[in-house]
């Protein structure tokens, strides 16, 4: 038996909206520690890792580890039916191939029950080692979204360069070139407005912009984003979900032959 209750159905809805274009089918692994999902896009260039800790839920019960394969577009269809302030309760048991989403209005006057068919998904799971990264940049998530969208109108790829003084995003295309340089900014009223650059050694990497633009769909989930880079390694783009976990996107770099 699995049962979990979230104060805001809207949170899960936003999470699924932010990843469903990248991965259409995925298996949620449920255990006593929470709900996790790891999946690659169909071209195996990017990977999504979602972690929702059990202590971030209002109620969480998972008698034994349990896998729930879901079509994320179908899941999104159901989650869209939740009211803005509805709570969400998820229920599933091994006896039937269904997960139930219960949406309850704040005054408890409306209770909607949606049952989604579960599916068996065969996917390759990758072990992601904990690594020290050469550079870690934290910046407002809206700023990162603006940068990748702006550069996406100039070129297909972005070259990210981190030095101790700044982080540069550069793109080129048929119409010309663009470089956006962000300096470290610590003296802000709100901590989420900071741009923090931690550099062990300088890095310079190139990535396909369309994936980064896709990752930035998670902007509304967190005020700031953390980008971790090491030479010839996938970049990590992390959105922390307050009090419950994170969504991490990994993207393999473009490499010179």
């Amino acid at each position: 038996m699995f049962e979990a209750q979230m104060a805001q159905a809207a949170l899960l809805k936003q999470i699924i909206e932010s990843i469903r274009e990248l991965i259409t089918e995925a298996t949620f692994e449920v255990s006593g520690t929470g709900m996790m999902l790891q999946a690659m896009d169909s071209s195996h260039v990017s990977l999504v890792a979602l972690n929702l800790r059990s202590d971030g839920f209002q109620l969480f019960r998972a008698d034994r580890p349990f896998s729930m394969g879901m079509n994320l577009n179908h899941m999104a269809k159901m989650l869209k039916c939740a009211g803005k302030d509805d709570t969400l309760t998820m229920r599933a048991d091994e006896a039937n191939d269904l997960v139930t989403f219960l949406f309850e209005s704040p005054g408890n006057e409306r209770l909607a029950e949606f049952e989604l068919k579960l599916m068996d998904i065969t996917s390759e799971n990758l072990g992601i080692p904990d690594a020290e990264y050469s550079a870690t940049v934290s910046m407002p998530s809206a700023e990162f979204q603006r940068i990748v969208k702006d550069l996406g109108s100039i070129g297909d790829t972005v070259e990210i360069t981190v030095t101790k003084d700044d982080v540069r995003f550069a793109a080129s295309g048929d119409i010309g070139n663009a470089t956006i340089k962000c300096r470290q900014l610590l003296d802000t009223e709100k901590p989420e407005d900071r741009t923090l650059i931690e550099m062990v050694e300088p890095v310079n990497l190139t990535f396909a912009l369309r994936y980064l633009i896709n990752f930035s769909k998670a902007t509304s989930l967190a005020p700031s984003v953390t980008i971790k880079l090491s030479t010839e390694m996938p970049v990590v783009v992390e959105y922390k979900l307050s009090d419950i976990g994170y969504v991490r996107f990994y993207l393999a770099p473009k490499i010179e032959d």
Partner: peptide, 14 residues
């Protein structure tokens, strides 16, 4: 031009 690498080149299947 640079070649697009894949995730499996960095992380192993488990």
């Amino acid at each position: 031009a640079a070649r697009q690498s894949r995730m499996a080149a960095f992380f192993r299947a488990v």
